[in-house]
Write a protein that binds this DNA or RNA. Sequence first.
DNA 1: TCTGGGGTCCTTAGTCGT
DNA 2: TCTGACGACTAAGGACCC
Length: 344
Amino acid sequence: MAGWWLFHVDLDQFQVSVERLRRPDLRGRPVVVGGDGDPARARQVVTCASYEARALGVRAGLPMRVAARKAPDAVFLPLDHAGYEAASAQVMDTLRGTGRPLEVWGWDEAFLGVTADDPEPVAAGLQALVRDTTGLPCSIGIGDNKLRAKTATGFGKPAGMYRLTGANWMSIMGDRPVRALWGVGARGAARFAEHGIATVRELAAADPAELVRWWGPTTGPRYRALARGEGETEIRIEPWIARSRSHQRTYEQDLTERGVVERELRVLADQVVTDVVADDRVITRVAVVVRNSSFFTESHLRTLPEPTTSAAVVGEAAVSLLDRFELRRPVRLLGVRVELAPPP
DNA sequence: TCTGGGGTCCTTAGTCGT
DNA sequence: TCTGACGACTAAGGACCC
């Protein structure tokens, strides 16, 4: 009898793969995608590195200049959002076209609900379908819930598949560090270490009351469930409704004059409002983010007197929020974030 | 090595009204 | 009139993810 499976479909080195569709000569070579593609420019980081570049130590998040030092022979390319969006849409349409429920998670990931006795041949068929239709390679994690499927994908990369269920979760994950869990970052792992918890197995066996004391009534139980591999099994096919929208920019040279800061804030406000209006949404709150030259980040938020779609109103609100910041040091980054009213 | 951009969710703390 | 409990809401910051 057929079981219900969650597939996590993840496109491999997504941005690099899309670039290689247009430029087959890039296959087999180290490729680094990020910023405007100029590794000499300061304050840009790598968004996606090909496996050849990763072998040289280049990773997402690495400053482009450092990447250029590690991989001097790599091809550096600028980000092409429109291109990635189009490629992503094609992949998602292909998956949806199989008639199975699809939950899209950003450009390069999605969960698919699959009914099958034997899921691996189905996964192989999907990989072939995506590759033949779009030219893009993907990995598939197979699980009895979303967490296990998502975690399994990592063991299938590149271009492979892996199955993780209640039957093998602890034998595969138990001895790994808690950091291997999806949702446990460096800070979380450090806090667990303070309590003598290093591995997934130790976390799964931890006293639930202790976890609540350390982390609170919501997060404590969530970590425990995470370590045990528990997760959602439903696919939500409704499109995601964004709660907020933002634009932020790190300046190549820190800003030192208030007039310039105000002007840049209005530019960012214009960009955000343009996006929001294009999506037919309405703004209820405005936040400003300032990161200074010491990398200290501060934000302040204001609720508007009434919901708006006016760039002038948002710009004014942003500039007025500036009074709540110290602004004693040069400004490295400015951001404008708006929160949105629920759609009608 | 020196740290982007775009998001979400949670916690904590303060305020307000009943 | 004073006080406390409690929910709703706001604000700031932290952590995490891709």
